[in-house]
Design a protein around this nucleic acid. Structure first.
Lengths: 166, 166
DNA sequence: ATAGGATTGTTCGATATTGAACCAGCCGTC
DNA sequence: GACGGCTGGTTCAATATCGAACAATCCTAT
């Protein structure tokens, strides 16, 4: 291969640095949040995310699949966590009326309460670590970046066998 | 509490949207890379990351702890994965000469080869999904964002019991 | 020198996540 | 209507991760 071999095989060093830093930062963020949430409120970050999504939904309820989509995990993982949350009394299952396969997951009062206890702690963390230092322009820029990434991912999902090579 | 109650308890809707989108995008990216890597090259993303870091290090080797820091996981997870990689013949352990506690992990020729096979596939994915659509300004902006986040995390790590409340 | 504290890496048990297999129930077409 | 394909949710085995506990070694201060 020609002169562009390096370029095509590896990322430019600076670009590579951005990528690895991205990975590190996201992992560190996750760990931080997780530790805080477990230590102070006895729930995982994923569990917290589930509560948040439910609180956001109509009637504070949501279908299992929808939940899996929102928090981006396998369906089986959602089943597992909903069982946990259900044992804790933070969530309830209800049969779906117009689709006998489906189940709704609904926030219980206790679940809402737990969420409201946990939210300030975790949101202040998000502000401090993630958002406080952003001015409006930066926030807008970040939003745009996320949009592009999201679109790219959509495109790839829509066209799964994009690069059969390698 | 006064009128700022909502503000202090919850994020502004738009800010909240940015945060949840961030979580979704990062998770989707991880999954994408993982599936591709497993499907085409038989290694996990973390395993790939380990190989990359080793290739980067002096003598294509690195200490266990350093490795754990770089890829941001528990030490025990590194032990686990290095065992796996060692069984696959991609990596070797060596005793550390000047510190009898330590062990070096070193890339084997087979490990380097495997990395070189996998790299183009995964790097093109990173380019397509993550970097291609960024112009220079955006890349610089992203770099700055990552820097701030990283610094914030450092500060929090340095001062662990920052918010004992909640 | 040596005691006390920190660091290195592994082990172990508990828990989370994944993907595949599976059963039901939905829905389109013939 | 009945059939085949699709979707929703659960189960199960395999695997990954974490944190705490541990042993060995290093380091520092006295």
């Amino acid at each position: 291969m020609g002169a562009g071999d390096f370029e095509s095989r590896w990322l430019r060093p600076d670009v590579n640095a951005v990528w690895t830093r991205f990975l590190q930062v996201t992992h560190r963020l996750e760990h931080h949040i997780d530790r805080r949430l477990q230590g102070n409120h006895g729930i995982t970050h994923t569990q917290y995310e589930i509560l948040v999504r439910l609180a956001d939904g109509e009637e504070q309820a949501m279908r299992m699949s929808e939940l899996a989509d929102q928090i981006v995990t396998a369906k089986s993982a959602v089943t597992y966590q909903v069982n946990k949350l259900s044992e804790m009394g933070l969530v309830e299952r209800h049969k779906c009326e117009w689709d006998n396969r489906g189940t709704w997951v609904k926030l219980t009062p206790a679940g809402l309460e737990r969420l409201e206890q946990a939210a300030p702690c975790i949101l202040s963390l998000v502000r401090e670590l993630f958002l406080d230092d952003l001015n409006c322009d930066q926030a807008a820029e970040l939003d745009k970046l996320l949009g592009t990434w999201s679109d790219n991912l959509d495109a790839h999902d829509r066209n799964p066998v994009d690069h059969p090579e390698h």
